[in-house]
């Protein structure tokens, strides 16, 4: 038996495979396909204080080895979440992490306070990197001052584990990772989608209603991997890597580059069982290579080079 568990502070994860926010619904959508409780954790879709209708359609476009989305954080708000979704999520025997979003710092503070009261939510993933909402979102994550302020504010009101999700749409992502660590984040996760666009030459119009949107999938993997490698070398808190992970080998690249855990995103659209298959693949890789603990793999790249 290989050891797969990992920790963020004293929060235990039975394995390092999680699902990425916005790509796994509330987990419940996947119950027909896999035993969600086998995963190390799930990050549920982005939540806001008030209900949001999201952006008009078209909200997605297929691009070479990936997709653009402009969902715009459509969700029913925290009241609905507490009443109608949380009771089901509480039944999962794995870590449930809530991805929080806001337009103002006060939104984040209120949300964090309310999530803090939900006993079965293990952690908050602070999303300061959504490219699809005009106010807030990425604006927080691409400005050092506001990134610091929002992290500090949430840290002050939230006692659970705090994961800050970083935007790749910055010149130096390491600066933002350091800010998160300095302000008391327990972990950082990266990367969110890369800002991109696509044009339909038949109609001569943008493919997305919002013109620009977030790029995900294998197309972004090399960029994501590079950023995870840079951030992991600079920080002492655990780094959660994501971006284009489609199979176990992809995930292993992230571990070698220094990620303590990974999130599976877009891959779940093409194969709803991708996350558990990746988990199984990691396990057999470790056995094959003669490792007894995944920790031996983490950041190995830096030790060799």
């Amino acid at each position: 038996m290989v050891k797969l568990d990992f920790k963020i502070g004293d929060l235990h994860f039975k394995n390092p495979v999680l699902t990425a926010s916005g790509t796994f619904g509330y987990g419940l959508e996947f119950d027909d396909f896999l035993d969600v409780s086998r995963l190390g954790g799930i990050v549920v879709k982005g939540i806001t204080l008030e209900p949001r209708e999201g952006n008009p359609s078209p909200r997605m476009a297929e691009t070479p080895s990936g997709m653009l989305n402009a969902v715009g954080l459509q969700n029913k708000g925290i009241d609905y979440f507490e009443k109608n979704i949380y009771p089901d999520l509480a039944l999962y025997k794995t870590n449930v992490i809530v991805n929080i979003n806001g337009s103002y710092i006060d939104d984040y503070i209120t949300l964090a306070g309310r999530i803090g009261k939900l006993k079965k939510i293990s952690a908050i993933e602070l999303n300061i990197s959504c490219p699809n909402v005009r106010m807030g979102g990425m604006a927080f994550g691409t400005n050092e001052k506001s990134a610091r302020e929002v992290t500090r504010a949430v840290r002050a009101v939230y006692q659970g584990k705090l994961i800050v999700k970083l935007s790749p749409n910055v010149t130096n992502i390491v600066d933002f990772a350091r800010i998160a660590e300095e302000e008391g984040a327990d972990s950082v996760s990266l990367i969110n989608t890369l800002l991109g666009m696509s044009v339909d030459v038949k109609t001569m119009k943008p493919a997305l209603s919002t013109i620009t949107g977030g790029l995900s999938g294998p197309a972004i993997k090399p960029v994501a991997l590079r950023m995870v490698w840079q951030v992991a070398r600079a920080l002492t808190i655990p780094v959660i890597g994501m971006g284009g992970i489609m199979n176990a080998d992809d995930a292993i690249e992230f571990f070698l580059a220094g990620a303590s855990a990974v999130q599976v995103g877009t891959a779940s659209f093409i194969d709803p069982q991708a996350s558990v298959k990746i988990l199984e693949g990691i396990e057999s890789y470790l056995v094959e290579k003669g490792f007894s603990d995944i920790r031996e793999l983490i950041g190995l790249l830096n030790k060799v080079h």
Binding site: G22, T23, F24, G25, E29, F30, K45, G54, N55, P56, S57, P58, R59, M60, A61, M67, N69, V71, Q74, S268, F269, P272
Partner: peptide, 13 residues
């Protein structure tokens, strides 16, 4: 247009 077909991505609004 659909991303997932199972209600997970909200791309098909």
């Amino acid at each position: 247009l659909m991303g997932c077909g199972i209600g997970a991505c909200l791309c098909c609004a």
